[in-house]
Amino acid sequence: MRPTAQILAALGAGLTFGFGLSLSGMLDPARVRGFLDVTGTWDPSLAFVLAGAVTVSSLGYAVSRRLRAPTFAPAFAIPTGRRIDQPLIGGAVLFGIGWGLSGFCPGPAVAALSTGALPVLVFVGAMLAGMAAHRLLTRPSSARPSGADSPAR
């Protein structure tokens, strides 16, 4: 592990991501909703954002398959699950409703924090609350006797 190199790499990747979002138009919720509005005056331009991103990202993934480990970390942390289950679909439905209502998904919302605009702060604050709520609800049951996991005194 090389913590400082990892931090700088993550900072550079985040900056590239935020710059790309700004250039692409994804930071404009009205335009995102125009892309999602397939029955109205549909604006298909944002499909090119996903197309460009997935194309480059798949090249990066192909390279990673030929490497034993990433440059600054001991191993790749890539999800391996393949099961399409109820939480996956239910979560995607809920996320889609929130995305459709606001025009914001997590990346653009976090990037837009730099504007300091109140609506962005409200959205991101609520998003963090939603994440915290999920964490509380899925926390391992606290009903068992306390100290069950601690070593015997």
């Binding site: 409703i97 929130g98 998904c105 409200v122």
Partner: peptide, 13 residues
């Protein structure tokens, strides 16, 4: 919308 996005993205990974 923010609550739905936060909760939904965690539930849906």
């Amino acid at each position: 919308a923010g609550l739905l996005v936060g909760f939904g993205t965690r539930l849906g990974s």
